[in-house]
Computed example of a mutant assay.
Amino acid sequence: MQNSQTGGPLIYALTCGYITLPTSYFISGEEGKTRVPACVFLIDHPRGLALFDTGFSDRFIGMEKGLGKIVEMPDEHSIAQRLRALDVDPDKIDWIINSHLHLDHAGGNHMLPNATVIVQSEEWDFGFSGEDGAYAKEDFDTGQPVKRIIGEHDLFGDGSVILFPTPGHTPGHQSARVRTATGEAVLAGDCCNFRRSLDEMRLPEAVYNADHYRGSLQKLSALRRAGAKIFYGHDPDFWETVPQAKELDLRAVQ
């Protein structure tokens, strides 16, 4: 795959596993459980290939104990297999943009050996602190080059892919604005789990910093009012409407 167009990067949506958790983990005040996707995006830019998050690790394939009771990871869902299905060599990925380092967002990092990981510096430090059990060091402490950033970062230097801080879920969470030929996409990650999270300004039941999380939702709300299409981090209903493994036309995204 090689983007030779001049209208901006191309985006492809990929599902890299599922996890079932109490719904209140994603939006407060809700009962029951919800099965949600691990959402990954391939960004094909003329200057290189980037992934926004990498889903679950392939170590969950076939696992039926421990986390395997709540994580579903078919073999074809690993990021390496998802890329190969698009005729993309995992060795050719240049950049991994980790929204944060939880195991459903950084699990596939090790399958992309030549990629440089881009992460907010505060997130990198927090991942090693041991304060949050959703981090697994084996997922992100892989020996790959790591570019630690602080604040906004223009990935390709042309304004088409801008990383920006959206803390609250974790201290160093970040999202991405991607300007394509068909509009602007905001890859939210876990700063906004469901469409309802943004519509109703509702936080998850447990957050690292509620004030920061609320501020991140407000930032996304302003972007949505300005016309950006928000890709909510774990919304199963929204995700069903997003074409998988195909070039996304943002004009068709609801």
Rank of each mutant, 00 (worst) to 15 (best):
Pro46Phe: 04
Leu198Trp: 04
Ile27Gln: 13
Leu86Ile: 03
Asn98Phe: 03
Lys246Val: 10
Ala181Ser: 14
Gly62Trp: 12
Gln144Gly: 06
Glu247Ser: 08
Glu131Ser: 11
Met201Thr: 10
Ala136Lys: 13
Leu83Ala: 07
His77Tyr: 15
His234Asn: 14
Met111Tyr: 13
Ala252Asp: 14
Val242Gly: 08
Gly168Tyr: 04
Asp132Pro: 04
Gly143Glu: 00
Pro9Asp: 02
Asp237Arg: 13
Leu112Cys: 04
Asn98His: 12
Ser4Trp: 14
Ala85Glu: 11
Thr20Ser: 09
His102Tyr: 15
Leu14Glu: 09
Ala176Phe: 07
Leu67Ile: 01
Leu198Met: 02
Phe60Arg: 04
Tyr135Leu: 01
Arg35Pro: 00
Gln174Lys: 08
Ser175Gly: 14
Phe140Ser: 05
Ile27Gly: 01
Leu83Gly: 06
Trp124Leu: 10
Pro145Asp: 05
Ala176Asn: 06
Asp158Val: 09
Gly172Asp: 04
Arg196Cys: 00
Arg179Gln: 09
Asp94Lys: 15
Ser129Met: 06
Asp87Met: 03
Arg35Leu: 03
Cys39Val: 14
Lys65Pro: 02
Ile61His: 10
Val146Asn: 01
Ser28Met: 00
Glu138Asp: 12
Gln218Gly: 13
Val178Asp: 00
Ser24His: 15
Gln5His: 14
Ser57Cys: 05
Leu14Tyr: 13
Asn209Asp: 14
Val40Pro: 07
Arg148Gln: 11
Pro46Met: 01
Gly17Pro: 09
Asp211Ser: 12
Ser4Leu: 15
Pro37His: 05
Glu240Asp: 11
Glu64Leu: 05
Phe140Trp: 11
Thr116Ala: 03
Asn114Val: 04
Phe164Ala: 01
Glu247Met: 13
Ser121His: 10
Gly68Tyr: 11
Tyr213Ala: 00
Gly108Phe: 05
Ser78Asn: 09
Asp132Val: 11
